[in-house]
Design a protein around this nucleic acid. Structure first.
Length: 497
RNA sequence: GGCCCCAUCGUCCAGCGGUCUAGGACAUCACCCUUUCAAGGUGGAGACACGGGUUCGAGUCCCGUUGGGGCUACCA
């Protein structure tokens, strides 16, 4: 049986995909999966001046990291090894279609220069008129154009928009939307460098590739009439349009770099799990219709429907993402957590990971022994750096801030007493295990009549260099007797200075 | 400015005419648990933008106002 549903993610390689953009890809992917359709990737690189080769790689990486696998269209060879379709490789097709449109009277050559356009808009604005192209090119003769061409002036092809009547279309989540044609200017479909504009290229490709559903950001609603017009002129059918609500920054404007760099790869590098980002993002603008929030991919695929996509924009909430990431971290097995932690921690110090003086590779079994004690404390993998650097640091590299000892209005002689008792216990204890240690230290706390908190804090600081650290007795055990003794001795010396 | 879209707690969502004295989650506050920090538990505060209709009945339908956003390129 033939697959009916074909959706595409069509980013332009002008920057690293950000959250808003990739959310559309997520919807695309889910929709194709939930309908047993296909999902393809098309690189829309028709703007040569903004093209950035790095971002093309970033697109692949982002998609792969999130697990959004794409297919090729049966019978249509992709343009890259990565199985994506690339518009610049299809240039001839667009030129051919543009010329067809000229031939059929739906488009015309225009030699209006960019400078003329700028001064035209300027004049209009001075007069308080809306800035728009005045369709002057309609009245240029073939001779005019030929002359301009031989003079080396830039020539474009513009679509001839009927200047009366209206055009309407159905957006799958908002219903009917109507526009007056008189408000639409004759727009460029083929640029002077021979490249098509988005308007032409995507219509041609969607038709050529058999795209059935177009998911795109709400910002495209206003230019949809242009796309419809091209469809009409070409006498081809339109796909379904699903304009998804925008993702907004804290200030409620369209999410952009200005809101603090929200590229997908950055989330990866900051220690977020792909499952968490996926889950969070899909909930931004969609819900299953009840209160469920934590859902696996297959859950979501099962429950997804276009009708449940919301029509109002959503503000991106970093804190909720963090919370959700914590949920996903806690769901990981210790083995998986350890591996994720290692691959994160081994990166250079400059990326927020373990200090460079710590030898790589990081030992798996060591991380595995610690992982259970930090698992529920992590919001991101990055948090782990600070939580366990002291496990890997040499004793002499543990930096202690003396002031940390004195926050509870306690006195130095008590602190030294606690530390010396600790030394004593650690020295004498037979089985250096956390439960044994805890037993002895609790007994000591009672004997000395010192509250556990007061007794344990100096030990924690001495051994980890931190006021906040993983559970003390487990920490001691993993560190081992020798290192504990050495660190506490060092701390006593420091305190006596 | 013009055109288009949108409007439930601070934020994300549920609600698709009566079960709404409006439910969940994040954040926030209090308490419990507790060796720090978390995690967890319990509880609190917190919203249907406004005005007209329609209807026996409106958060839910219609219109307007207000507010927010988007578009207005030889960028996508």
């Amino acid at each position: 049986m033939k697959n009916e549903i074909l959706v595409r993610y069509a980013p332009s390689p002008t920057g690293i995909p950000h959250i808003g953009n990739i959310r559309t890809a997520i919807f695309d992917w889910i929709y194709s999966k939930s309908n047993h359709g296909n999902f393809i990737l098309r690189i829309e690189d028709t703007d040569q001046s903004r093209y950035d080769p790095k971002s093309e790689t970033a697109i692949y990486e982002s998609l792969e990291w999130l697990g959004l696998s794409w297919n090729e269209i049966p019978g249509k060879k992709p343009d890259t090894l990565k199985k994506s379709y690339v518009q610049s490789k299809r240039k001839k097709l667009y030129i051919q279609i543009a010329q067809e449109l000229v031939n059929s009277g739906n488009a015309y050559y225009d030699d209006t220069t960019p400078e003329e356009l700028i001064s035209l808009r300027k004049k209009q604005q001075e007069l308080g008129l809306p800035p728009r192209y005045d369709n002057r090119g309609r009245y240029r003769t073939k001779e005019d154009i030929d002359k301009s061409k031989s003079n080396g002036l830039p020539i474009v092809i513009r679509f001839k928009v009927p200047q009366n009547g209206s055009i309407k279309f159905t957006d799958e989540i908002r219903g009917k939307i109507n526009f007056n044609l008189s408000e639409i200017e004759d727009f460029v479909i083929l640029k002077s460098d021979g490249m098509p504009t988005y308007h032409l290229a995507h219509v041609v490709d969607d038709k050529d590739m058999g795209i059935t559903h177009v998911f795109r950001g709400e910002e495209w609603i206003s230019s949809t009439p242009k796309h419809l017009l091209i469809h009409q002129a070409l006498n081809i059918s339109t796909p379904k349009y699903i304009h998804v609500p925008l993702i907004l920054g804290k200030d409620k404007s369209k999410l952009s770099k200005r809101h603090g760099a929200k590229s997908v790869l950055e989330y990866r590098d900051q220690g977020y799990l792909p499952e968490a980002l996926f889950n969070y993002l899909v909930l931004l603008g969609w819900s299953p219709g009840n209160d469920e929030e934590i859902m696996s991919k297959s859950d979501i695929i099962k429950k997804f429907s276009i009708e449940k996509i919301s029509e109002s924009p959503a503000v991106f909430d970093q804190e909720k993402l963090e919370w959700m990431n914590g949920i996903y971290i806690r769901k990981l097995s210790i083995d998986k957590l350890s591996k994720a932690l290692i691959s994160y921690l081994e990166k250079p110090e400059i990326d927020g990971c373990l200090p460079d003086q710590i030898k790589r590779p990081i030992n798996y079994s060591q991380v595995k022994s610690i992982a259970p004690f930090i698992q529920e404390r992590l919001k991101t993998l990055k948090d782990s750096t600070e939580m366990l650097d002291f496990f890997f640091l040499a004793d002499e590299d543990i930096k202690i801030n003396k002031d940390d000892y004195f926050t509870k209005s306690n006195q130095i002689k008590d602190i030294l007493k606690s530390l010396n008792e600790a030394l004593n216990i650690i020295n004498k204890i037979k089985k250096f295990k956390s439960d044994e240690l805890e037993l002895l230290f609790r007994t000591l706390s009672k004997e000395l009549n010192i509250k556990p908190g007061i007794l344990f804090t100096p030990i924690r600081i001495s051994v980890t260099g931190k006021k906040i650290a993983p559970p003390l007795f487990e920490t001691l055990e993993i560190l081992g007797r020798k290192r504990c003794l050495s660190r506490i001795n060092k701390a006593i010396k420091l305190l006596k200075e």
